[in-house]
Amino acid sequence: MYSIPAPMLAKAAASIPDPAKKPMLYEPKWDGFRGLVAWDGEEIEIGSRGAKPLTRYFPELVEQLAAILPGPCLLDGEIVVATGPAGAQRLDWEALSQRIHPAASRVAKLATETPAMFIAFDLLADGEEDLQQHPFRERRARLEGMLSDAPHPLHLTRATDDPDLARRWLAEFEGAGLDGVVAKPLDDAYAPGKRTLIKIKHARTADVVALGYRVHKSGSGVGSLLVGLYDETGALRQVGGVAAWTDAMRQKLVDDLAPLVVRDEAGDAVTGESERSRFTGAKDMTFVRLRPELVLEVRYDQLEGDRFRHTVQFERWRPDREARSCTYDQLETVAGYDLADVLQ
């Protein structure tokens, strides 16, 4: 069996990089689980970005990839799940996240109900030949030769050297649930664990209401500020959290937020508990409740259902805004795009 390396990573950029400065290949940025598939001719192993084995959670991929791959190899790619009717499918993060379950019976059930796909975008080994020191342009060419006729659920990601087409993908493919565009230097070797790729993601702003905060894991200061939006019924719904405060700001926020803390008759702070998922584990999900009066502007990339897909970034305070004016209506609506048109 191949030794599965740490995956090559990406650093964020605000726009599509100019290929005149460095030759680039552009790919859609798939919103799924990073997976490195090792096939030695007898067994399939799937490693993750965090070194957590994913093999047991995707038995359908293990069975199907073993039958499809022409020979021993080590692939880098993304595990995704698509849902929706024909002609309007999109990536479904929630359905994918449900696949990580401790019960074997549940894993088997979901493998049938929400089967996964593997989107390959790099070839790290072919037979006994280690390709990690070869330039990406060579690895990509060999990957294309290997997977040119591969059937579903194994797909070769689209790629282009045209920055204008990459910009179009950035705008259009979000409608199919994709996360942006990745730019990859064509002359670079594979760099495990290094952020040598470039990711360009969607960035938007929204005015949200502070509804609570969690204490920092150190036990002192604000760790994350929970934020919400008002829905069409007038209910304030939690939509995400703002983190990454400096040490000084974490302490300052405790004092700044103190007048807004909801207290009981005894004068003690009232706490709540956020919804749990399989990713939170035993993490303390309690938070200190705040009166919904403070408005802040945040940067976000995209929504997953009615919540922000990722942790959002603080932009500025908005003392000029009334909390009740912070509704879902301000969020950008993305035009739908059929995932099948991305896979082709």
Rank of each mutant, 00 (worst) to 15 (best):
M1R: 07
D18Q: 11
A20L: 13
P23D: 15
Y26C: 10
D40M: 08
I46H: 11
R49M: 08
R56H: 08
Y57F: 09
L61H: 02
V62P: 03
L69E: 03
E78K: 05
I79G: 06
A82Y: 03
A82F: 00
T83L: 12
A86M: 11
A88K: 14
R90A: 15
S105H: 15
V107I: 14
V107H: 06
A108Q: 10
K109S: 10
A116L: 07
F118I: 12
D122T: 04
L124M: 06
Q132E: 15
E138G: 02
L143A: 05
L143E: 03
L143P: 03
M146G: 06
A150I: 05
L156R: 07
T160Q: 02
D161G: 13
L170P: 07
L170F: 13
G177M: 02
P185R: 02
A191W: 09
G193H: 09
T196F: 01
I200Y: 01
I200S: 00
R204P: 04
V208I: 09
L211A: 07
R214G: 08
H216N: 05
H216P: 00
L229T: 05
E232Y: 04
G234Q: 12
W245Q: 03
W245V: 14
A248K: 10
M249R: 10
D255I: 14
A258G: 08
D264M: 02
D268Q: 12
E273Q: 15
S274Q: 15
S274N: 10
R278W: 14
M285F: 06
R289K: 10
R299P: 08
D301H: 13
G305F: 07
R309W: 00
C326H: 01
E332F: 06
A335C: 08
Y337S: 00
D338V: 02
V342I: 05
